[in-house]
């Protein structure tokens, strides 16, 4: 897996392909803030950034979604009214998932009621690691039911699963239980998303699709802050799942600082100069 993953990083993406790729990356970002210190002001800034990535560069696509805690969903909803930027909310006792199913479902329900388009839930890693796969499955299925029309992203927190076999198993479990997306990480645990882990999950998606015909999305999250790396992820998706997944409907990046790096690369492509860190907005 590591060797195959390395091959993607050896693909060289230049010129027009790079331009297209960078814009695609921007459009796939779930612009995220998930801090204890988040305030309404911070969320407003984030939403503004989502709408106005960089005003000096015309014709930029916008990000796919913003990703916030449930208590900020209604605020974000107001801020992004009139756009098609989605509101994603983490739920189910993010990031640890250590609470009762009842509380988790209530949290999901509240987030959905407040207007969340997408729910990013965490699986119960403790239950998974103790072999209680039925519990994990039932929990995901229950959350999915509670989501209603909201799309469900299932965070495996791969950094806590210990090995790639577990990642594969958890991916299969989540998809069978109804996940619309599978997602690597909360961003709170290291390692977060890596190419090999994402590759294992993409292969699981491919096999699931082959078996059932249902398309499931993928979201690597955490640790992807360089546009070059993001492009390598796109190459990996292209060569593993094909172009049907190269759309923000089916592939997302969970990231907070990636957008700025992509912007800098786009500015570099347009102007020919490397921009400084302060040439893009810090939010």
């Amino acid at each position: 897996m590591a060797q195959r993953a390395k091959r993607f990083t050896e693909r060289s993406i230049k010129g027009e392909a790079k331009r297209q790729g960078l814009r695609m990356v921007l459009n796939m970002i779930d612009l995220t803030t998930l801090e204890g210190s988040d305030t309404p002001g911070k969320i407003q800034q984030l939403c503004h950034k989502a709408r106005h990535l960089h005003d000096n560069v015309p014709d930029l696509p916008h990000v796919a979604a913003v990703c916030v805690y449930p208590n900020f969903v209604s605020l974000a909803k107001r801020e992004l009214a009139g756009t098609d930027i989605k509101i994603a909310s983490v739920a189910t006792a993010f990031p640890s998932g250590q609470t009762s199913l009842e509380l988790k479902l209530t949290e999901v329900e509240q987030a959905v009621d407040a207007g969340a388009d997408e729910i990013d839930m965490v699986i119960s890693r403790g239950r998974f690691l103790s072999g209680d796969f039925d519990y994990v499955f039932d929990e995901i299925a229950a959350v999915k039911q509670t989501c209603g029309t909201a799309r469900l992203k299932v965070i495996l927190e791969t950094g806590e699963l210990g090995n790639l076999d577990n990642v594969r198993h958890a991916s299969d479990l989540a998809m069978e239980a109804g996940a619309d997306f599978i997602k690597t990480s909360t961003g709170k645990i290291k390692p977060a998303a890596t190419l090999p882990v994402t590759l294992v999950m993409l292969l699981a998606i491919r096999d699931y699709h082959r078996r059932t015909g249902r398309q499931v999305g993928m979201k690597p999250a955490g640790g992807i802050s360089q546009s070059k790396l993001a492009l390598h992820y796109l190459v990996m998706v292209q060569e593993t799942l094909g172009p049907a997944w190269l759309d923000n409907q089916w592939f997302r990046f969970g990231a907070s600082s990636l957008a700025n790096d992509v912007l800098k690369q786009i500015i570099k492509q347009q102007t020919g100069y490397y921009p400084a860190a302060d040439d893009v907005s810090r939010d």
């Binding site: 590591a2 210990g162 390692p191």
Partner: peptide, 11 residues
Amino acid sequence: VEQISSSGPGY
């Protein structure tokens, strides 16, 4: 050889 050790998972 699996690339996971006590000094931190490497995958």
